[in-house]
Amino acid sequence: MARVTVASQMCRPFMGTVTEVEIDASNVRALIRELDRRYPGLGNQVEESMAVAIDGVICQDTYLEPINPDSEVCLIPKIAGG
């Protein structure tokens, strides 16, 4: 089970005070689906406004990035730049 953490309060409307969950997902798509199942609405929030850092590598707008059972997954705001 991958450990999913949220450092910001961006997910609070969906997760309340929960900031860490264990999720069984093999890629970002499965992760989003499972997050949305547990916290309705969170899937869309993650998909539209957030990036997913998997083992320290920031991934944005991608379903296919693999997640390992022992991966560290962090939900963070999406990043752009100048």
């Binding site: 320290g56 962090c74 963070i76």
Partner: peptide, 9 residues
């Protein structure tokens, strides 16, 4: 990092 991920490379 303060924003969550464990830094790498």
């Amino acid at each position: 990092a303060v924003y969550g991920p464990t830094l790498k490379d």
